[in-house]
Amino acid sequence: MKSIFTLLFSISLLLPLPSQAGEILPLAVDLQKTGKVAEKHQVPVVIFVTATWCNYCKKLEENILTPLLETTPIEEYAQFQQMLLDKSHWMMKDFAGNDVEMKTYGPQLGVKVAPTTLFFNSQGEQIAEPIIGLTLEEHYPANLEKRINQALEKLGNPKRLDIYKLVEESDGL
């Protein structure tokens, strides 16, 4: 597991840092539309709930998510979105197509800590346990892999994510 983290961290040092939210990880502006795409491909919707003031969120995005999204085909296993908890008046559509304020939607979903990673089916029902916080970065990729695989199984999708293999194949190691 430590080698996955080391590999991802090494990749992250070579990549430019995102200058604003949504640059690498798309903002959750229309979850109804995202849900339709996820349903078509029989994959979960994964939402990373973050805040601009959160140093752990920045570590998660810069050291793990950005390298994965830029260097691997991980998007074949889920539809990834980001929701910010601290941006007043940023509007989005929930899974039912209702207009909601991004800042208040996270707490409506039960989010109390940033970062929190949530896993949904196309209708907005949680289908895997959330990942709450970021304690040790080297454990996060395995936790993400486990939850995405649980979600894929609940959706009846036989695909299984192996993050280490994706990273290895993408880097040609």
Rank of each mutant, 00 (worst) to 15 (best):
M1Q: 12
K2P: 00
S3C: 04
I4S: 05
F5M: 02
T6V: 07
L7K: 09
L8T: 04
L13I: 00
L13T: 03
L14V: 02
L15P: 00
P16D: 06
P18G: 13
S19N: 09
A21V: 02
A21N: 02
G22C: 13
E23L: 08
L25G: 10
L25H: 02
L25W: 02
L25V: 06
P26F: 15
P26K: 13
L27M: 11
A28I: 02
A28D: 05
V29K: 12
L31N: 06
Q32S: 06
Q32R: 11
K33R: 09
V37F: 10
V37P: 01
A38L: 00
V43Y: 12
P44C: 15
V45Q: 04
V46N: 04
I47A: 09
V49Q: 00
T50F: 07
T52N: 12
T52V: 03
N55I: 02
N55W: 03
Y56M: 09
K58V: 09
K59F: 11
K59D: 11
K59V: 04
E61Q: 14
E62D: 05
I64F: 05
I64R: 01
T66I: 01
T66G: 02
T66K: 03
P67S: 07
L69T: 03
E70D: 04
T71Q: 05
T71P: 00
T72E: 01
T72C: 04
T72L: 03
P73A: 12
E75Q: 15
E75W: 14
E76T: 14
E76F: 14
A78G: 14
A78Q: 04
F80I: 01
Q81E: 12
L85T: 05
L85M: 15
S88Q: 09
M91R: 12
K93T: 08
D94E: 05
D94L: 08
A96C: 06
A96K: 14
A96M: 08
N98S: 14
D99V: 11
M102T: 14
K103L: 12
K103V: 06
T104I: 04
G106R: 01
P107D: 08
P107V: 10
Q108I: 02
G110F: 13
V111W: 04
V111H: 01
V111D: 00
V111E: 00
K112S: 11
V113H: 08
T117K: 03
T117P: 01
L118V: 13
F119M: 01
F119P: 00
F120A: 07
Q123E: 10
G124F: 09
G124P: 05
Q126K: 13
A128S: 11
P130N: 10
G133W: 03
L134W: 01
L136M: 11
E138C: 07
Y140A: 11
A142R: 05
K146F: 13
K146L: 13
K146Q: 15
I148S: 14
E153P: 03
K154S: 15
L155R: 10
L155F: 15
L155N: 09
P158T: 12
K159S: 13
R160W: 01
D162E: 13
I163Q: 05
L166T: 06
V167T: 06
V167F: 12
E168A: 10
E169D: 11
S170C: 05
L173W: 10
L173Y: 11
